[in-house]
Amino acid sequence: MSAPVLELSGVTREHRQGDLVVHALRGADLTVAPGELVAVMGASGSGKSTLLHIAGGLDTPTAGQVLVEGQELTRLSAAALAAVRRRSVGYVFQDLNLIPALTAVENVSLPRELDGVRGRQARAEARAALDEVGIGELADRFPDEMSGGQQQRVAIARALVGERRLLLADEPTGALDSTTGEEVLRLLRARCAAGAAGVLVTHEARHAAWADRVLFLRDGVVVDTSGPVTGAESLLPAGGGA
């Protein structure tokens, strides 16, 4: 197996409010290899968004290690961390954050241009990313000229553009209907199959089921992990019955 893209070990995140210490995450471990999609489930407040933010370098753990493509994020300078965030990590949030005054291709090429890539090359990469998510022909439309599912594809293309190998998605199917939501998952799944590593936070079991592994968080602790069953024997009750 190739080297993991993401490795969290013993990650703890505390928030202090006066004398009160709230543990958003306690001793969480998670390793994601290229080609893998891992879903994280849990009730609100279980720590699943905190886990995603820490994995993407948007939040810093109180204890533990976070490695993205072998780089320990907590030891990086602010500038180096920002570079990892721009170059290695793609984010898809429920709130798409598309810029309404920019076309699809401009929205997707913006992060590359901010990263110092020349305009012409950035736009070529953006068109390729839009092709990959199946909306190449909509490249010159503005967000409000597209359906919710198409806008979500633009957001995913923006997360994929360049050489980013870690894809972090927080409720990416948000307000989409069930068929469109499924297309978004199909796309994430396909991207991971093509070599990216993905982490998907969701409260929908039907969406989490697209992942290779599902982590269950409760009060900041990983309480269980499930993978797909592979044979009829595991569908039988283990305890025996009458």
């Binding site: 989490a208 697209w210 599902v214 309480v223 992990t225 797909p228 592979t230």
Partner: peptide
Amino acid sequence: VQTQRSATMSTLQELTR
């Protein structure tokens, strides 16, 4: 609850596959 949820999730993953 969690034992059941993991088992049902595994079934769901297999159905999706």
